[in-house]
Design a protein around this nucleic acid. Sequence first.
DNA 1: GTCCAGGGCCTAC
DNA 2: GTAGGCCATGGA
Length: 218
Amino acid sequence: MILRLEEIYSRLLGRYGCLGWWPADSPFEVCVGAILTQNTNWINVEKAIANLRQADCLSLDGILRIAEGQLAVLIRPAGYFNVKARRLKDFVSFIENDCAGSLDAAFSGELEVVRSRLLKVKGIGPETADSMMLYAGQRPSFVVDAYTRRIFSRLGLVPENIGYDDLRNLFMSSLESDAGIFNQYHALIVEHAKRHCKAKPLCDKCCLGNVCCFGSKL
DNA sequence: GTCCAGGGCCTAC
DNA sequence: GTAGGCCATGGA
């Protein structure tokens, strides 16, 4: 049986309930987290964010002000710290110079225009741009990640090697364009993946019929 | 010791 | 246009 996207959402919501993503105190913090979490465990990101907060650098001005080398030291626990320090600097420069220092301005305008503007910033790829738009800007841009591709290809809904934009388009054309739903759906996918898709061997009580649950790698 | 985590850029073919 | 290498920490 092939499950539809709405049915999968309904099952995940029934299983895990409202998750209330993203775990951050402000839209700016969401953006910082989106960059820091690239290919990195969230636990390590939290440590880096705690360092930034303690150093009073968890703000646009804070990151503009601090030297890149010092920034790298603070975010060290998140890994790739030299790369990510540069990316954070590039991002705040974009907000300061191209958006008049306003995150609201960065997220204002036609959806795909906002997205393509973000994608021009070095270090912001599709997933990071969509995460920022959805979780910091409350814009209905669906976030696809490795978990999404893994689960939905295992369920037989898409090819394993489907491209990012193709998978994003599938969700966005199949679901009501609602930031609240997109927010929940992505959060539910991540929650499900963390609990089930890494289970070895097959986990039990999988609300998607165990199909997606057989180790983290195919 | 090995694998993996809520990616993205750059270089070679 | 795309596959492969690189960036790097910390927990399982």
